[in-house]
Simulated assay, not measured.
Amino acid sequence: MIVSTGMATLAELDETVRTLRDGGCNDIVLLKCTSTYPASPQNSNLRTIPHLRELFGCEVGLSDHTHGIGVGIAAVAFGATVIEKHFTLSRADGGVDSTFSMEPHEMAALVTETERAWQALGVVQYGPTGAEKPSLRFRRSLYIAADIKAGEPLTPENLRVIRPGFGLEPKYYETLLGRRVNRDLAMGTAMAWEYLG
């Protein structure tokens, strides 16, 4: 059952959800709704969406009376799994809800962009993803900039911060200056800890 929550108090929503569950309905979607026509983005209070999910343990969505698709897309970022919008074949035809109803091309855009927003949620992720790993080469790192013999020190002339990013991180530049290498290293070698004597 899809339930619009427009103007309902928390106590009323609790009673509604309990009544539905007591009656055997466990597939419930609560739609955050601002009962103004049209509604403004400022009065949409989308932060209520995850709170509803947490309180009632059910799917949540948005009954959206704002103009455009922005609020609906933002709702997805807050966990909305259903977006309800008023629809018209043409606003020019008039009607009670026509000013904030969506025409077919706008509805198509809403579908496309909310799907993109949903896909973009992903998971909590730090560090490079599999898709990003090839881009690591665009980072800068430490490279041998001139041929150097075993036992020679690293200097600003033979150690540089350049692309690609396969050597030690640039933050180690000052630490490495003056340290001696334990083998001959050719210009273009990505610097590694194992090369230090």
Rank of each mutant, 00 (worst) to 15 (best):
Pro50Ser: 08
Leu55His: 02
Leu55Gly: 07
Arg21Pro: 04
Thr48Tyr: 11
Asn43His: 14
Leu52Ala: 00
Thr19Val: 13
Ala11Asn: 15
Thr48Leu: 10
Thr34Met: 15
Thr36Ser: 13
Gly6Arg: 11
Thr9Ile: 06
Leu46Pro: 06
Thr34Ile: 15
Val17Gln: 02
Ser40Glu: 13
Leu31Phe: 02
Thr36Trp: 06
Leu52Ile: 01
Pro50Trp: 04
Glu54Gly: 00
Glu12Phe: 09
Lys32Glu: 14
Pro41Tyr: 01
Leu20Ala: 06
Asn45His: 14
Ile49Cys: 00
Asn26Asp: 12
Gln42Ser: 14
Ser35Pro: 10
Ala39Glu: 05
Asp14Trp: 11
Ile28Gly: 03
Pro50Phe: 02
Thr16Arg: 06
Asn45Lys: 06
Asp14His: 10
Arg21Tyr: 05
Lys32Pro: 12
Asp22Arg: 01
Leu46Phe: 06
Ser40Cys: 11
Ala11Gln: 13
Val17Asn: 01
Ser44Thr: 13
Ala39Arg: 07
Tyr37Asp: 03
Glu54Cys: 01
Pro50Asn: 03
Asn26Thr: 10
Glu15Asn: 06
Lys32Asn: 15
Asp14Ile: 15
Gly6Asp: 03
Glu15Lys: 05
Gly24Leu: 08
Glu12Cys: 07
Asp22Gln: 04
Leu55Pro: 02
Pro50Lys: 01
Glu12Arg: 06
Thr9Glu: 07
Val17Thr: 03
Ser40Gly: 03
Ile28Lys: 00
His51Pro: 03
Pro50Met: 05
Thr9Pro: 07
Asn43Lys: 14
Ile49His: 00
Ala11Pro: 11
Leu13Gly: 04
Pro38Met: 09
Ile49Glu: 01
Thr48Asn: 10
Leu30Phe: 06
Arg47Lys: 12
Arg18Phe: 02
Thr9Tyr: 09
Asp22Gly: 02
Asn45Tyr: 05
Arg47Met: 10
Ser35Leu: 07
Ala8Val: 05
